[in-house]
């Protein structure tokens, strides 16, 4: 009956849209939080399905040469590989937060709050929690119980039973757990696994300019609907501060030109 044309003399009613809106049943796949359009290709369906787990890690640097000794340096940076993992995790939560979700952060003591807010997290709906390792699992369970998105940086050693408990709770309550860093969540496989494989910064050149844009390569994998491996190049962030897909060559070149430091140019 949705296809019947509206009777003459009455304002046209889009019955298909009306039916969508009044339908009583929502499917599991529709219980989802929005993500930025640029990050859509990374997650199945282009949305963060509620109750799922996303793990964000960085691949070990290849060809870094003498750089590999750095893993011991500075807690947060050493644990995540420092190639865009935290920014990617924040970007994942950004659109959901803008749409009204509460975001919790646990176990990321060095989080740059300014970057979190720049990613779109709302200052009045962001809760940052510090927990000692002994109380970590309890705190994580309490957070996934109540909040929509929880960013966790798990401690190095974690009991598998605790991790399972947290994930079960998250599935029941419909919270999205974003696991930041290489430690993983007690050996539990994530529904979506994002790995940053390469990162290049633009905007600085031999003492001039300042960091403006970064191009990262992200490999997405996971279980179920996310099992198919996808490779995506992202601006994280682009020169305008937003996350964007880096697909077309010309946009890449344009961004690179935009981010070139302001040296003197011959203009005729």
């Amino acid at each position: 009956m949705g296809g019947r044309p509206p009777r003459p003399g009455r304002p046209g009613v889009d019955l298909t849209a009306l039916r969508e809106r009044t339908r009583p049943v929502t499917l599991a796949g529709e219980h989802a939080l929005p993500v930025a359009p640029a990050l859509g290709p990374l997650v199945p369906g282009g949305r963060l399905r509620r109750g799922t787990t996303v793990a964000v890690t960085a691949a070990p640097a290849v060809g870094g040469g003498p750089g590999r000794g750095r893993a011991a340096a500075g807690g947060g940076a050493g644990a995540t590989g420092a190639r865009g993992v935290t920014t990617l995790a924040l970007a994942l939560a950004g659109d959901a937060a803008t749409a009204g979700s509460w975001v919790g952060v646990l176990g990321l003591p060095d989080l740059g709050v300014e970057a979190a807010l720049a990613a779109g997290l709302a200052p009045d709906r962001l809760v940052v929690v510090d927990a000692p390792p002994a109380a970590w699992a309890t705190a994580a369970a309490a957070l996934v119980d109540a909040l929509d998105v929880v960013l966790v940086g798990p401690p190095g050693r974690m009991r598998a039973a605790d991790a399972r408990r947290i994930l079960t709770r998250a599935r029941e309550r419909g919270a999205v757990t974003v696991v930041v860093g290489a430690a993983g969540l007690g050996g539990q496989a994530a529904d979506v696994a994002l790995t940053v494989t390469g990162s290049t910064w633009y905007g600085i050149d031999g003492g001039h300019g300042h960091l403006r844009a970064r191009r990262v390569e992200v490999v997405a994998g996971g279980r179920g609907a996310a099992a198919l491996e996808r490779r995506v190049a992202l601006w994280l962030p682009g020169p305008d501060g937003q996350v964007a897909l880096a697909i077309a060559e010309d946009t890449d070149r344009r961004h690179q030109q935009e981010t070139a430091p302001g040296r003197l140019r011959q203009v005729g």
Binding site: G76, T80, D110, G112, E114, R212
Partner: peptide, 14 residues
């Protein structure tokens, strides 16, 4: 500092 803001700010700078 100009944006982007750093995502990791070391509480105890190494």
């Amino acid at each position: 500092l100009p944006p982007p803001a750093p995502a990791v700010v070391h509480r105890d700078p190494p």
